[in-house]
């Protein structure tokens, strides 16, 4: 096979792949159950973090000088 033929074949593969991706755009957004659990846990962590008051926490009103 000569070079132009190889390039043409590669381009065809790329075009087909792009077409498939466009036909099924949601495929990229599919979240596995593990990923969903991780997101849930992250959300829970954020919620927990803001719930407690740290020992070193202070109300700050600025410095006098």
């Amino acid at each position: 096979m000569n070079a132009p033929a190889i390039i043409a074949a590669l381009l065809s593969v790329l075009v087909i792949a792009a077409g498939c991706a466009q036909q099924n755009p949601e495929s990229a957004n599919i979240v596995s159950p593990e990923e969903a659990a991780a997101t849930d846990s992250q959300e829970a962590l954020n919620s927990i973090d803001q719930t407690f008051i740290n020992e070193s926490d202070e109300v700050r009103i600025g410095e006098m000088i």
Partner: peptide, 17 residues
């Protein structure tokens, strides 16, 4: 906690003032 912390911050600034 928040009210006491505010009281403390004011007292601290009174002393430093």
């Amino acid at each position: 906690v928040r009210l006491l912390q505010l009281q403390k911050a004011i007292e601290r600034n009174i002393l430093l003032g």
